[in-house]
């Protein structure tokens, strides 16, 4: 069967769209990479970027550019926010799909959509004036990895919940009928059939959410404390890469600016490696009989 002309034209047009979409990330990598070259090369050089103990780019006496604690800060804050967000988000989606009465289903959906649209600066500001003082009384100084993780979890939860909800909705009704015929209860159907079937959709949402968490800037900057250090506990201040770029980019002069681009480049690489690992991992076979 040979495809019609229409099909070929459509296929080509859509193909171009697809390659364009896939290519943008390459474009970004190249642009950021080019700007980062001086810093990676010799000013101050990659050994300084990865080897220095401290982050003191503005010091006149002895500038230091150790960005490992900063990259670690990004990874830590993402891990600590994605876990509660995934648990609560998927829980929310399950409740919304399988337990909530109809009016509440729509209501919850609206709330989640709105939550996704609250500007990060508003959530950050709320975190700074409401959440941080509470944490400060309990575990000073308040601005900390924990505060950043909580604020981030609130921000990315809607992404997890909404995509999980869509994925659960797409589970074929036949599966539910089969489960019912087998005498499976509601909980067993959800845990044993619905969630495993919707796994890929949910995972996609979690990846999107994790990406947002590691890339979030304006909210994190206000509650994380911004001290570039290896945190001793989750109540210590940390400084993620995005916060560093946001705090310093506008104020950086030539060499420092290139270092920040290098930081952005490394950040994209770290995330890219993680995403690539997930994407290129052999998909384990789902339960299909």
């Amino acid at each position: 069967m040979s495809p019609s002309v229409n099909d070929r034209v459509a296929g080509a047009a859509l193909g171009i769209a697809a390659w364009l979409c896939g290519g943008i990330s390459l474009l970004i990598l190249i642009w950021v990479g080019v700007e980062a070259i001086p810093a990676l090369n010799n000013d101050p050089g990659i050994s300084s970027l990865l080897g220095d103990a401290h982050w003191l780019p503005g010091s006149v006496r002895e500038p230091q550019f150790g960005m490992l604690p900063i990259l670690a800060g990004s990874v830590l804050v993402t891990i600590f926010s994605i876990i509660p967000a995934t648990v609560a988000g998927v829980g929310c989606a399950v409740f919304q799909r399988f337990y909530a009465p109809k009016w509440m289903r729509t209501f919850l959906r609206r709330v989640l959509e709105l939550l996704a649209g609250i500007p990060s600066v508003v959530i950050g500001f709320w975190g700074l004036v409401v959440l941080v003082p509470i944490l400060q009384k309990w575990q000073p100084p308040g601005q900390s990895l924990a505060a950043a993780a909580i604020v981030l979890a609130i921000m990315i939860l809607p992404t997890v919940a909404l995509t999980a909800s869509t994925a659960l909705k797409n589970v074929s009704p036949g599966l539910f009928r089969a489960a019912a015929a087998l005498g499976m209860g509601r909980a067993r159907t959800i845990l044993g059939v619905a969630l495993p079937t919707a796994r890929r959709g949910i995972a996609g949402g979690v990846i999107l959410a994790a990406a947002r968490a590691i890339g979030e800037t304006m909210a994190v900057v206000m509650v994380c404390g911004n001290v570039a250090q290896w945190p001793g506990s989750i109540f210590d201040p940390i400084r993620p890469a995005t916060a560093t770029i946001a705090l310093e980019m506008s104020y950086a002069t030539a060499g420092h600016r290139s270092v920040l681009f290098a930081l952005a480049f490394f950040l994209v690489l770290v995330v890219g490696a993680a995403v690539g690992w997930i994407a290129f991992r052999k998909p384990s076979t789902p339960h299909r009989r």
Binding site: I245, V271, A279
Partner: peptide
């Protein structure tokens, strides 16, 4: 292409 898009999704907004 999927990998490119996933990478794009993970690019921080400030970048």
């Amino acid at each position: 292409i999927t990998a490119g898009i996933d990478l794009l999704a993970s690019v921080p907004s400030i970048v």
